[in-house]
Every structure is written in C-alpha cells, then in structure tokens.
C-alpha cells in the first residue's frame, strides 16, 4: 500500500509538449507510471513518448479514465488548467509549476475544497511511491521501497534526506512534497493523517522549514498519532525572513521561527534532527524499536517510549 497514488493510478500530463512536460513524461514512463494522456491546447493529434495529446481535458477524459493529473503548465495558465481538470472530474492534481499567483491558488483551493479534490502543490516535485509510481520531477534513482513515509515542503532537501535513507538501506512507502508556496493544497496534517492510516508506513519523516506555521499546525495532530515522527527543520541560522507587516505578526503571533517550530514538534513527541544527515540514524533507531516491540500494532500507543 501507499498513499495518494499506486501502480494502478492513471495519469494525465497537462502541458505535456513543453520542455519540462516532455522530459518528465519520459522519466515517469521509465519509472513505470501509468501515463495515459496529455493535454496542450492546439496540439491535438500529437504524441509525446507514445502518449496521445489532446486539446482539452474533457477530450482526454472522454477516451480514458483518469485518476490524477500533473501540471507543467506555465504559471499564468495554471488556474485555468487546474479548474479544467477538476471540472472534468479528476480528483487528484499535482501542480509542479512555481510562481503561480497566490490569488489564483486561493481560487483553485476554494473550488477543490468544495468538490473534494486533492491538490498537491503548487511549487512541488510531486509524489513518489517507490517502485510503484512517480508523479512529478523527483530524480528516480534516490528512491527505494520500504516503510518510511516522507512529507516535505522543500524539494532538494527531500532529495538529500531520502538519498541518505536509501544509501543506508532504509526504504520509503511514499514521499510527498506538499509544495513551497504560502498557499498549497495539502497541509502536513492532511498527509500525516494518510500515513497514520497507511498499513505500509511505520515511521514518518517530516521535513519543514522556517516561515509560515505549517509545522506548528501539525504538532497537535502528531500527539494523537500512533506512529513515530522524526523531523528536520531548515533555516536555524537564516536571518529573519520577510515579515508581512503587522498582519503577519498577528496571524503568526511569534510562530514561524526555528525555535518555535522545534519546540512545538518536540513537545508533541517528535524527535527533531539537528542536521539533515542525522535523520537516517534516528529513523533507524525508531524502526529497530518497532521491531523489538512484541506488542507493535496492538497497543503501540501505550508502549511507545515518551521523550
């Protein structure tokens, strides 16, 4: 099992004829992802890596049953493309594009919430379920199947930590980039909930960074989780970021700093790594404790050591 996607997931690529769309369609196919169709307005009848291209999403859904769409569309066209996919009935969207106007995101998310669609991104590398399916732009070679779930805001930092895990023989169940923008479709909590319910995931790695309050929002939920969570937060030494005037300070009320995030997570029982390179060791400790525990899966929440 994995979360969000698996080998059955049939995928549409929006913006398939651009450089990025073309290259990553080829990469996704090579990984075994079931890419069934692509859309670029005005390019109907073309093929990209053997994948048929349509003018509109509806034209594609008339011929294929599609579970998920990945968007390589230029930033200015993302709102239209995302609404088009949802209106055509697709309920999982992965928006790779960066620099999408934030008010466009607000509209996309409002519609998604209303119809019950799941949006990953924007500004994400996507989702990988190692050995099963990859949707997005992550380098295929760093992933390895296993039982660690990974959720992150940042791309290359995910690669760094996942690469370390794989190099030490620690595989992953699913790796999800929720996206680096202020407004993204899924919060840490949304993804943690899925990992908690996923039988293939036994430990979760949360990769956060300074700014916003996504990590703090996750803390109360983590206290209810039965699975151990390990975290790394980037930006300990970064200078104070752009402040959004008084309103930003009011909304966050001192949140958003490294120390605030770290404290919130640690109080929720999360083991926070000081350096990205330490994540693997902590995960290995958590995994060995699980395997040593004869009651694992039965009364895990009681037998779990408290930090």
């Amino acid at each position: 099992m994995s979360i969000l996607i698996d080998e059955q997931t049939s995928v549409l690529v929006q913006g398939i004829t651009g450089n990025q769309g073309r290259f990553h369609t080829q990469q996704m196919l090579a990984y075994g992802t079931n890419v069934v169709a692509g859309v670029t307005p005005g390019r109907c009848g073309m093929e990209v890596e053997g994948v048929p291209v349509f003018d509109t999403v509806r034209a594609a859904t008339e011929e294929y049953s599609i579970d998920a769409s990945v968007l390589f569309t230029p930033a200015a066209a993302v709102k239209d493309a995302a609404l088009e996919a949802m209106e055509a009935g697709i309920r999982t969207l992965v928006i790779i594009t960066e620099h999408v106007p934030v008010h466009d995101c607000l509209e996309i998310m409002a519609y998604a919430d209303r119809i019950g669609a799941t949006i990953i991104g924007p500004n994400t590398y996507g989702i990988v379920s190692p050995g099963r399916c990859k949707i997005g732009i992550a380098p295929s070679s760093i992933f390895f199947p296993g039982s660690v779930g990974v959720v992150a805001r940042s791309g290359t930092l995910s690669y760094e930590i996942v690469g370390n895990l794989t190099a030490s023989g620690v595989g992953q169940s699913t790796v999800v980039g929720i996206g680096g923008d202020r407004v993204v479709g899924q919060s840490f909590v949304d993804i943690l909930r899925l990992f908690e319910a996923d039988s293939a995931t036994s430990v979760v790695v949360l990769i956060g960074e300074i700014g916003g309050s996504a990590e703090e929002e996750a803390a109360p939920y983590i206290t209810q989780m039965t699975k151990p969570v390990v975290a790394y937060i980037a930006g300990q030494s970064a200078p104070p970021g752009k402040r959004m005037g008084h309103a930003g300070a009011i909304i966050e009320r001192g949140r958003g700093t490294y120390h605030h995030k770290r404290r919130a997570l640690e109080e929720a029982g999360v083991r926070v790594a000081e350096l990205p390179s330490q994540v693997t060791g902590i995960v290995q400790t958590e995994l060995s404790m699980l395997h040593a525990d004869p009651f694992y899966g039965l009364i895990w929440s009681f037998s779990r050591p408290q930090q």
Partner: peptide, 8 residues
C-alpha cells in the same frame, strides 16, 4: 531548503 540546511 538545501541552501538553508547548508547555512545551518
């Protein structure tokens, strides 16, 4: 993210 981690 990785740039921030490098500074850290």
């Amino acid at each position: 993210g990785i740039t921030m981690a490098t500074l850290d």
